[in-house]
């Protein structure tokens, strides 16, 4: 609600997907995806499992390769050029469903790794940034522990801080709360909501409809590799137009 108050139409577009198609073997995962993300926009992507929503955001930082169409991130077109891919990955942070922290490194080393090696930042500076981010996600006291010693919710907050350490312009969230025990979902969502209010451009694959209502500028519903419907959250939940959307919303809201 807070977000819809801002006028996004004048904002610069930071991600453009034009006619993106992808196949896994014979299986058509993404069909003619067109998407334009403005700077500071928060998008929630939902849909049944296997609908291609994770694949879509993973194409944006080239964890998956698309076969047709163009993806432009911050003016850089994704191609097989490694330099382009690395440039985009420096600007785009990602948070995974299974956290994917590096278990052999301390929390602090997890955070400072990319700034030191990718951005060539001096160690001391990187550690200062890392500590301020850990304070922001409310776990500075865990800095010298290893990921295995933290709870799931704490690990996911570390993962968010790790992505933010690179000072990204865009954040991708791939079902960030799906692997968490119910009592830990809120602590992660709170951090994400805070991040959204600060103006970060965010693409979140999630089924947390409360989160969508609170921060999303736009909710996208995907099914069978297509964008079926997209709208502002109020409209999207109150008046879904497509039958598939209605069916999906009926199923997930019924469970809540």
């Amino acid at each position: 609600m807070a977000a819809t108050a801002r006028d996004l139409s004048k904002a610069e577009s930071v991600i453009q997907l034009k006619g993106v198609n992808k196949w896994y073997g014979q299986f058509h995962v993404l069909t003619d995806i067109n998407l334009d993300v403005k700077e500071g926009e928060k998008i929630v992507i939902c849909g049944p499992s296997g609908s291609g929503k994770s694949t879509l955001i993973r194409c944006i930082n080239r964890l998956e390769e698309h076969q047709r169409g163009d993806i432009v991130v911050h003016g850089v077109t994704l191609s097989n050029d490694v330099k382009n891919i690395e440039a985009i990955r420096r600007e785009v942070g990602m948070v995974f469903q299974s956290f994917n922290l590096f278990p052999h490194l301390t929390i602090l080393d997890n955070l400072t790794l990319a700034p030191i090696w990718v951005k060539k930042m001096p160690k001391k500076e990187a550690e200062e940034i890392a500590m301020s981010l850990l304070t922001r996600v409310r776990i500075p006291e865990q800095a010298l522990k290893y990921p295995g010693q933290l709870s799931g919710g704490q690990q996911q907050r570390v993962a968010i801080a790790r992505a933010l350490c690179m000072r990204p312009k865009i954040m991708l969230f791939d079902e960030p709360t799906s692997a968490l025990d119910p009592e830990m979902v809120k602590e992660v969502l709170d951090v994400m909501i805070e991040l959204a209010r600060e103006g970060m451009t965010m693409l979140c694959v999630t089924h947390e409809m409360g989160f969508a209502r609170a921060v999303a500028d736009r909710v996208i519903f995907m099914d069978r590799g297509e964008i079926v419907e997209q709208n502002e959250p109020e409209e999207f939940f109150a008046n879904p137009r497509n039958d598939r959307t209605k069916l999906f919303l009926g199923q997930i809201l019924h469970n809540h």
């Binding site: 990955r89 995974f96 994917n100 990319a114």
Partner: peptide, 18 residues
Amino acid sequence: LPKGQFEAADAMGLNYPQ
């Protein structure tokens, strides 16, 4: 090693030797 370790390293922009 789980695939996620490779993906997390990729997503952070580390190159192959790193």
